[in-house]
């Protein structure tokens, strides 16, 4: 006896709870009259019951703790970014300071070589700069990583960076004398220079403007 193909489809629709009343009636009627299909249907239900009755197993102890331990550590980063967001001014200031210090330190490290400002009558011998007796050096004198020996006269400021200065009794400096030896002094010097340049720039502008009027 051959059963219509759609009977098996109806069985599955029934099991999916997606069967219309009319189809369900037809299925029931068929199952009453056909023992093969009836057995087929019973076996399907039995298989489902077996699967459903497998005991529900639980995750092993310590499962959650072990997941939590394996999560990437994001907290520190998050705390930082939270802090930055709530203190925008401080973040900007610290960033500025960091960059400033960085750039100045790098120039400090770059300038380990001996150098001297260019004036025609300065004499240079083995890392020592000499302002000879009786000579008059015009303009500012800057010596880096070397000694300065002033026996004559300097008409301007004298700056010795990372070195020594010797002023002979006969020597004479008309402007300021400065020695810069430590990193912090160096930074301070830099900041003062920048500030002076900036002020000079603005001052210069004002002068230009006043000239234009």
């Amino acid at each position: 006896m051959s059963c219509p193909d759609h009977i098996v489809d109806y069985m599955h629709d029934y099991l999916d709870e997606e069967i219309s009343e009319r189809e369900e009636q037809e299925l029931r009627k068929h199952l009453h009259s056909c023992s093969d299909c009836e057995q087929h249907f019973r076996e399907l239900k039995k298989a489902i019951a077996f699967v459903q009755n497998t005991s529900h197993i639980k995750a092993p102890d310590g499962f959650t703790a072990s997941v939590m331990a394996k999560l990437p550590k994001e907290k520190k980063k998050l705390e930082m970014s939270r802090w930055f967001k709530s203190h925008p001014f401080l973040s900007a200031a610290s960033l500025f300071l960091m960059l400033m210090t960085g750039s100045i330190l790098s120039t400090w490290n770059e300038d380990q070589q001996f150098s001297v400002s260019k004036q025609p009558n300065l004499v240079v011998e083995n890392g020592t700069v000499v302002v000879p007796k009786g000579e008059v050096v015009k303009g500012d004198v800057v010596v880096r990583n070397g000694r300065l020996n002033i026996e004559g006269e300097v008409q301007g400021d004298v700056t010795v960076i990372n070195g020594e200065k010797y002023l002979a009794s006969a020597g004479h400096v008309t402007g300021d004398v400065q020695e810069v030896n430590e990193v912090f002094e160096w930074i301070w010097y830099h900041i003062k220079e920048t500030a002076r340049d900036t002020v000079g720039l603005f001052g210069g502008n004002e002068e230009d403007q006043s000239l234009q009027f």
Partner: peptide, 23 residues
């Protein structure tokens, strides 16, 4: 960024997910 809140989610679903994987 609250990791502890995730712990509660894991607690809620761990058995179901473990069961699925085991089967």
């Amino acid at each position: 960024g609250d990791q502890d809140a995730y712990g509660e989610i894991v607690e809620l679903y761990r058995d179901k997910v473990f069961q699925l994987c085991y089967r």
